[in-house]
Nucleic acid binder design. Structure first.
Length: 253
DNA sequence: CACCAGGCCGTGC
DNA sequence: GCACGGCATGGT
């Protein structure tokens, strides 16, 4: 079974909030002090940063087939979605992104991401701004952040700026301790911590339970826990998440 | 008007 | 330990 790469789902499906779809259906993002433009995954192969970012050395097509073979629900989820990847994002960007994500929707998270970039990042090309570093974001007060629309997440962002050194500590910690370390930041609980570990530390044993995934588990896996999906916990979760959201035609995202 | 969004915090028991 | 309300903001 040959499955097609679903770059759109990888870039816009909720594991990163850095990418935007252009009118010509290409994708662009400001990363690594540059503006990247992509039409397909092949465009990433010649760039060393993107090769790593898209985890090109991992065989996601084989993983998709393994996952699809696990049970009927996963088979349906994988076949209806196509191959999706787990990105290697910057730790800091992932931490702030998923703090922004709590009790929020993808469209609005992207809007906040852009406003933070414009207000506190730097211009790498006319009109294109990088996501602010921790030092750049340290210039923002809580009121500044609220005025950008972050709402009750503003103090969480301030706390993340002050505890950014945790991101280095996490590198050497096993999964459970890494999960605990990240939760020392206010506004980071189990779900947000799991997303940071999966989408920027390649910790594939993570299995974030958001409102959508709780529904999936309740309806299709009532007597199972995340270890059922081993060794593809994180990737299975991402397929199920994409699938259940695509089922809901009125989810406006 | 209500209810929801890739949740978490503080409180009460 | 677990249940519950509150929370900023914008969309449906």
């Amino acid at each position: 079974m040959m499955m097609e790469e679903n770059l759109r789902e990888t870039l816009l499906g909720g594991q990163t909030f850095s990418w935007r779809e252009e009118d010509d259906s290409s994708f662009s993002a400001v990363l690594n002090e540059k503006v990247y433009h992509l039409r397909s995954l092949e465009d990433a192969a010649s760039d060393s940063f993107l090769r790593s970012y898209f985890d090109l050395d991992y065989d996601y097509a084989k993983a998709a087939e393994d996952i699809a073979g696990k049970d009927e629900v996963l088979s349906q989820a994988v076949r209806s979605t196509g191959v999706i990847r787990l990105l290697k994002q910057d730790h800091w960007i992932a931490m702030i992104s998923f703090i922004l994500s709590q009790n929020n929707n993808i469209k609005r998270i992207m809007g906040l991401y852009d406003r933070l970039s414009h207000a506190y990042g730097h211009e790498v090309e006319p009109g294109r701004f990088s996501f602010p570093t921790a030092e750049e974001l340290s210039k923002a007060t809580e009121d500044d952040l609220r005025s950008l629309g972050t709402g009750f997440r503003a103090p969480f962002i301030i706390d993340a700026v002050n505890k950014a050194e945790i991101l280095e500590e996490v590198e050497s910690l096993p999964f459970d301790l890494a999960l605990q370390a990240l939760q020392r930041v206010k506004g980071i609980g189990p779900k947000v911590a799991s997303c940071i570990l999966i989408f920027s530390y390649q910790r594939r044993e993570g299995f974030p339970l958001d409102v959508w995934m709780k529904k999936v588990m309740r309806e299709y896996y009532p007597d199972k826990d995340p270890s059922y999906f081993h060794p593809y916990e994180a990737l299975s979760q991402q397929y199920l998440f994409s699938w259940i959201r695509s089922q809901d035609r009125f989810s406006g995202n």
